[in-house]
Nucleic acid binder design. Structure first.
Length: 605
DNA sequence: ATCATCAGCGCC
DNA sequence: AAATGGCGCTGATGAT
């Protein structure tokens, strides 16, 4: 299937037009069968096309496999459960990820479940049962789960499992396709599934650490940690990582007063005393001893164990001359943005401390790390969903500074605030935030008054959730709030989620994936060597040779703007009227270098 | 020994 | 009575 061509005029109807081929692979099972472990190998590939089920196994030879893979690149939909896994394997044996359209029954099931408030499991057996089919065959399933390698399971039994898998997967696909058509969710399914092969590819690349920078940072951190640890040891011989023990020391021994709001002590959700940095910063000192401990604890957190942990992992990685790999998951989060898990070194790609981004560089010498980042993405999406002309005006006005406006408003209301300190308040109303100091509440009021389109839309969502227990969005997504209700005090429970989910979801589960898909296909279409190596919610990270600077900038600009407008218009039948923009940073290391920012108004050609 | 939960903290 | 969203990972803790 020529996907690049399809993307010029995308339509979700492709799923009603193309015939399915359902597939399932078995592999040896080191690292859970990871395609990145060179000691693993493909054991079998089973496909179901119409009524024909065939299985390739190792003894059939690689030539037969190649022929089979070519048939998967025809005008068909590849159906599989967690098909990213299968794709990564098949890519190793020659399948072109650029030329397949997939339907991942796990991902589509998540689409149908929306935020999945009941946390229903999404493994194949559980989904099958919910559709009224038999679960997995228990014995082989038990073997697989307890680590028996598929290559040692009797062929006939393995075959039986493969046949079950493809039959059930295909049956689920048929029901899901019908459901998606009826619910108007086919477009969302398309967006999610177009991203799947892209993720399969991104994961295979991984990111490169700069050995010298890592070692320098590591040595520095260890030195500082030694100093602070010694200081703390002189204060008390307790476990400083234990909130319980630190709480006892602070509030019982040292007699710090707990922070209060409205006369009541601030506590953790389970009622424990607060010992986090933000709390410690606010504790009032009256004695020298208190001052000393507060100082040490703050320094301890600045160079805290978590940082040492990430540096430890970085160090292990560079010591092994290795690449850092992450895995993305499309079926975890309530809003359908990606979640990321660290693979070998247990580091997530999405929460690398900002100050450590400079430790990442390129695999090729003299290439650059490029980061394309959707400008104020969630704010703009909120503006679009609220059809808010004030948002459009403010983002188009180069003199308008949202954070400075926040700072000024807070200061005018009697709470002197710097631009930096204002940042955390600027978009709090987008998350449904309403409480805080008097000045903060005043700011939230003014925010809602200024962006009345946004706040009215949020109120509409809240009412809809109250009446129907769900919020349905124009692009087909639905979020379910079975327990939302108004409490005695007049507060609507779950209102923060109701306000935030649509915005976060459309921004980071639709727009950025669309940008990723288009970037990925355009890189290939224009024969660039640049590769995508990571994505973090509203950004795309690439490795790129310097001579591709102009071409890549052009691609990113189009992908983050026009491609999104056109895709949203064709697939979601929505006219996106708020300008989108992209900021592009290019440098020898991640997050270094000057940023170019460009917005493009949507012009439909 | 293993598991679930809490608290803390990193990112967007 | 109050209530800013979404994650994953770690260490501590307490139960099984």
């Amino acid at each position: 299937m020529n996907v690049a061509e399809f993307l010029k005029a995308p339509t979700e109807e492709i799923y009603n037009e193309l015939p399915p081929i359902t597939l399932d692979v078995e592999t040896t099972n080191l690292d859970k069968g990871s395609a990145l472990n060179p000691h693993n190998r493909l054991v079998s590939l089973t496909t179901k096309e119409g009524d024909t089920i065939t299985t390739w196994t190792e003894k059939d030879g690689l030539a037969a496999l190649e022929t089979k893979l070519l048939s998967l690149e025809k005008d068909v939909v590849l159906v599989g459960h967690n098909i990213k896994f299968d794709l990564q394997w098949l890519a190793i044996y020659g399948l072109s990820l650029y030329d397949v359209v997939v339907w991942d029954t796990m991902v589509v099931e998540k689409v149908l479940l929306g935020n999945n408030p009941r946390m229903l499991p999404l493994d194949l057996g559980s989904v099958a049962k919910r559709y009224g089919m038999a679960g997995k065959e228990p014995l082989v399933d038990l073997w697989m789960k307890s680590g028996v390698c598929p290559s040692t399971i009797p062929t006939s039994m393995l075959l039986k499992r493969n046949v079950y898998d493809v039959k059930v997967t295909e049956a689920i696909y048929k029901k899901q396709l019908k459901q998606c058509n009826e619910d108007g969710k086919l477009g969302v399914a398309l967006t999610r599934c177009l991203l799947t092969p892209v993720l399969a590819d991104i994961e295979s690349h991984g990111m490169q650490l700069d050995k010298d920078r890592v070692m320098e940072e590591y040595d520095k951190a260890m030195e500082q940690q030694a100093i602070v640890t010694n200081g703390l040891l002189e204060v008390a011989n307790i476990n400083w990582n234990s909130p319980k023990q630190v709480g006892e020391l602070l509030y019982d021994k040292l007699k710090f007063k707990e922070l209060k709001r409205h006369g009541k002590p601030l506590r953790t959700p389970a009622g424990g005393r607060m010992t986090g940095v933000d709390t410690i910063k606010l504790l009032k000192c009256t004695t020298k001893r208190q001052k000393n401990v507060k100082n040490l604890l703050l320094r301890n957190s600045a160079i805290n164990a978590k940082l040492t942990k990430s540096l430890n992992a970085f160090k292990r990685c560079v010591d092994a001359d290795d690449i850092l790999h992450f895995a993305f998951r499309q079926h975890i989060t309530a809003t359908h943005r990606l979640s990321s898990v660290g693979t070998f070194y247990k580091l997530q790609g999405q929460n690398i401390p900002r100050k450590f981004k400079r430790l990442f560089t390129t695999k090729e010498k003299d290439w650059d790390i490029v980061e394309g980042d959707g400008s104020n993405l969630e704010f703009r999406v909120a503006g679009e969903l609220g059809d808010d002309d004030q948002v459009r005006e403010d983002i188009s006005n180069p003199d308008f500074d949202a954070h400075q406006t926040t700072a000024d408003t807070l200061t005018r209301a009697g709470q002197e605030t710097s631009r930096q300190d204002a940042k955390s308040h600027t978009f709090k109303p987008l998350y449904g935030g309403t409480s805080g100091t008097d000045a903060e509440v005043e700011y939230y009021k003014q925010f809602n008054a200024r962006y009345s389109g946004v706040s009215e839309t949020q109120e509409r969502w809240k009412r809809e959730a109250l009446e129907t227990k769900k919020v349905r969005l124009p692009w087909g997504m639905e979020f379910f709030f079975p327990h939302t209700k108004i409490t005695r005090s007049g507060y609507q429970e779950y209102s923060t989620q109701i306000c935030n989910y649509p915005v976060q979801s459309f921004a980071t589960a639709d727009i950025i994936p669309i940008a990723l898909v288009y970037t990925w296909h355009m890189l290939r279409e224009y024969k660039l060597r640049s590769v995508i190596v990571n994505t973090v919610h509203d950004s795309i990270i690439l490795e790129s040779p310097k001579d591709e600077t102009d071409k890549l900038n052009e691609i990113l600009l189009v992908a983050f703007t026009k491609s999104c407008y056109n895709y949203i218009k064709r697939v979601y039948k929505m006219t996106f009227k708020t300008p989108l923009g992209v900021g592009i940073k290019r440098g020898s290391h991640w997050s270094e270098g000057d940023e170019i920012k460009t917005d493009i108004e949507n012009t439909y050609e």
